[in-house]
Every structure is written in structure tokens, then in C-alpha cells.
Design a protein around this nucleic acid. Structure first.
Lengths: 121, 121
DNA sequence: CGTCTATATTGACAACCATCGATACAGACA
DNA sequence: TGTCTGTATCGATGGTTGTCAATATAGACG
């Protein structure tokens, strides 16, 4: 792949896994969650949970804090907000105009697709 | 992987790719987009674009319609709505309570972590 | 019919990733 | 100090995925 430096892609790729989405949803609850609780909810071994938590951490989704032997994870509200904003930007944003391939408008770079291409709504 | 039957995961995985996110953003514009326009915006070969469009189609993100030789793609508004709803469900949802590992509350299944684990807000 | 254009499919390859066992690290406790 | 517990890292492995060249399919036009 392209090694994805785009933070939007990082956020999406981190959330696009069943185990990690379950973790994120668990963390959408009221308060912080102990890392030890994720092995139960996700049916995976402890190293796997640790790996997924690392991915979420590096994507900015969650932050970790030690308390004694346990590590408590909290969902980063700013990441959630960024994600909602990203999702909000994907819907349709109003209709404007005539239906022709975009390249055929300004430059006429392609060999003129001047056929019937109306009423595509 | 787990072959992901969860439609939420399907939606996320489909969007979590630079090329496909670019396609989705292109389709967030006013009207339908010709498949031939995606090869330009994404800097990938034609079979790759076709492959990504298939992934988006099977995830329910887009719908295709032939008009002569061209195929016009439109973003499925329902998919976008589902995605926004999914994103909205990820934020923090209010704070409730005392900080102890979730398993230590009801069943006491684990060996009693009864230490200092308060004020974690 | 044949040819041209646009799109989809096939096949192969390389890179990536989720998973887990084994092991290392960190803190609590005696 | 040593042991116990919870978490992170390492190493290996099997499956998935993004990519493109080659080919096939579909419609338009002579």
C-alpha cells in the first residue's frame, strides 16, 4: 500500500477491524476501560488485544494510563470528533448540473463523448 | 480474518483505503461521476479503479448505471447516512461511575483487583 | 459483420496484517 | 531480594489485499 500518512486514512483503517471496532464501542461507554477487560469481549488472545490497542493508540483513537498493574484506556474525544467530521463530509452535498464526464467539460481532453447522457438523476 | 459479515465493518473497510476514499469524496460532489474520471484523480491503472469500484459496490457505498459505453457511479445516500450514524455512535456518551475493571463488578470472575483505582477521570 | 472505446474480469505477485506462542518488562507485595 | 500479575514486544505464520498486464465483455458505429 501507500503507507498512508493521511490521518483520515489512519483513523479509518484503525477502526475498520472487527476487534478494534468492538474496543472502540466498549470505550464509547461512560468511563475508562481496563485493558484486561478487552480480552473477554473480543475473544482473542492477550497479545492480540495489546496489538490492536497499539494500533488504536498510534492512530490517535485512544490514550492509555497506568494505574498499578492495570492500564486504563480512554477514547480520545478529539479523534471521535474528527471521525464524525470525516463521515459528515461524505454525504451528497447538493445537485448542480448537466451530466457529462468531468474531463469533457473544461479541457475536452478525451474524444468527445457527445451522446445522450442527460437525465441521469 | 473473520470474513466480516458485519455491514458496519464492510462499510468501514471499504472506506479505509486512500484510493477508495478519494473516489467516495469525488462522489460526494453534486452529481454522478463517470468511471473514466477516476483513473485521473487517483493515479492508478484502470483495472485497479475497477477493482476498487467493485469493492465499494459490494459494500453498498455506490451504485452503477450504464449509459452507452460509460458507467456512471453515484454515492448511495443511505450508505452515507449509515456511516454517519456509525460515526456518531463512537463518541463518549456521558460519564457514570466508579472506576474498577468491569469484570470485577458483577461476577467477580477475576482475582479481585481491589486496590486503589478511584478518581480516574 | 468488424472495429473502436470503456469497463470488468482473470491471474499472478508482493506487501501487508491479524493472530498467537514465547518471552520480556513493569509494578505490587512479601 | 524474589514471586506474582498484568501488559507489551518479538518472531513466525497463514490469510488478505492492492496492484497491474493480459484478456474478456459490452455497447456504439460503420
Amino acid at each position: 500500500m501507500k503507507r498512508s500518512l493521511d490521518p483520515d486514512i489512519r483513523l479509518l483503517q484503525a477502526a475498520a477491524d472487527p476487534t478494534r471496532l468492538a474496543i472502540l464501542r466498549e470505550l464509547s461507554g461512560p468511563d475508562a476501560v481496563c485493558a484486561c477487560d478487552f480480552t473477554a469481549c473480543c475473544d482473542v488472545a492477550q497479545p492480540t488485544v495489546s496489538h490492536h490497542l497499539k494500533v488504536l493508540r498510534e492512530a490517535g483513537w485512544v490514550t492509555a494510563e497506568r494505574r498499578g498493574n492495570w492500564v486504563w484506556y480512554t477514547l480520545n474525544p478529539e479523534a471521535a470528533a474528527r471521525f464524525r467530521s470525516l463521515a459528515g463530509g461524505l454525504g451528497p452535498r447538493g445537485e448542480t448540473g448537466a451530466g457529462l464526464p468531468a474531463g469533457a467539460i473544461g479541457g475536452g481532453r478525451r474524444p468527445l463523448p457527445v451522446v445522450e447522457a442527460r437525465e441521469l438523476a
